[in-house]
Design a protein around this nucleic acid. Structure first.
Lengths: 223, 223
DNA sequence: ATCGTAGAATCGTTCAACAATCCAACGATC
DNA sequence: GATCGTTGGATTGTTGAACGATTCTACGAT
């Protein structure tokens, strides 16, 4: 059954616009296309060998994911989050993730493991002084928390919030150090969860958000 | 200042695709275009006098809002929520709204009033046996709750969830009676909030979601 | 130095065309 | 009689060109 579903995913080849959007998303999140950059329809369409109309469809898809912003008659730009954006972002994350974490005792073991495992791996790597994937590990931890809610819609929206946050990190030019700082926090949260003290874990998560928001907003408004 | 903002809103005239999307959204939420209906590019483009490319952009916008679903090489359809969709929807709402409601004591009076006022108006109308706007009043109540979080991203996502839920109501063919049933619940929640017993209000809201979800899922799977 | 204006560049939208895909009707086979 | 290819016809996916509308840039006037 699962192999059939796999095959189906292969068969449902993405449209050209979808493929272009995926490629551009990767380029933006990798940092090749910096926040604030304008994406010319002609230049990018020519480089990728797709028509303007198809490219515009790809732009609309990425606008939906808040990777790009569209300004009428001016073009599309790589999103460049402001301090206000970050505040809004964290207000949303606080409600979503703290709410999801409170469901800890009502969910499946697999869902709980999706929260523990990223932290365990990050700790293991940190002990070997390997901080390469510390950024994605942090994201995985928080994706796991949102997953406790069991709603694909909520998880998808959170992914959009994470993507936007990645752009904010990039503007602040402190991606690695940032995530690294907050690993101890994640560790403590998992410990509290394992001890069965869910409410204390929620409090820790909330404090994490307060600290992270303040840190990031500070770096952004410093510019 | 507010007049300037007004003028700016007028100047930023929407694009053709945006206007077409707005019109179609209205038609769908009014029920003129029923869930499951396929929207032919040629037919609708001809009727509205816009080109296929522009219409396709409008479709993409509505797909973002989950009003329409896009099936590759088959066309776009008015979304027709299933029982699983409704479960997913309520899982998201539970986390978002219960989490937002817990912030009751930390927000501005204006934000609190945005929760109370829709219920007060609905009660006043109900006493006069006027159940005309009971549906939108219920939505406004819940929009107010989400607004407590103070995040436009969260409020926007909730609006999408509400729109999707409207479509589910339409499939279940029980829009008015449905909302009407749950007015007493909203009333009780507001009372508990005014008494300062926020946690009890959250419990009531959670029970409301459980009942509403079960009711709606039952009607949908009965088909 | 500020302002206004002309011209270039880019976006918004339309139109026409063709390939790719889906769908429904029709027979062929067992 | 039901299931399985096959064949057209209709619809979507994508392209390329075209033109008006809007924005940006650079130049010159005050």
């Amino acid at each position: 059954m699962s192999t059939l579903a796999q095959g189906k995913a292969d068969l449902e080849r993405a449209s050209t616009a979808q493929k272009v959007a995926d490629m551009l998303r990767e380029r933006v999140l990798d940092g090749e296309l910096e926040p604030g950059l304008r994406l010319s329809e002609e230049a990018i369409g020519g480089a990728l060998g797709v028509s303007r109309n198809t490219l515009r469809e790809a732009f609309r898809l990425l606008t939906r994911d808040r990777i790009l912003v569209h300004e009428h008659s001016r073009g599309v730009f790589v999103r460049r989050p402001t301090g206000d954006d970050v505040r809004d972002l964290y207000a949303a994350r606080r409600v979503i993730e703290c709410g999801a974490l409170r469901l800890w005792n009502d969910v499946s073991e697999a869902q709980r493991e999706a929260v523990r495992s990223p932290v365990r791996q990050a700790v293991a790597r940190a002990e070997k002084n390997d901080f390469s994937k510390t950024g994605t590990a942090n994201i995985q931890f928080h994706r796991g928390i949102v997953g406790l809610a069991g709603s694909t819609r909520l998880s998808d929206e959170s992914d959009r919030l994470f993507a936007e946050l990645m752009l904010a990190f990039r503007v602040a030019r402190e991606m690695d150090a940032f995530h690294q700082t907050y690993l101890p926090w994640n560790r403590r949260i998992v410990e509290l969860l394992n001890n069965g003290t869910v409410e204390q874990a929620v409090v820790q998560l909330d404090e994490y958000f307060a600290a992270a928001e303040q840190d990031l907003v500070g770096r952004l408004s410093a510019d």
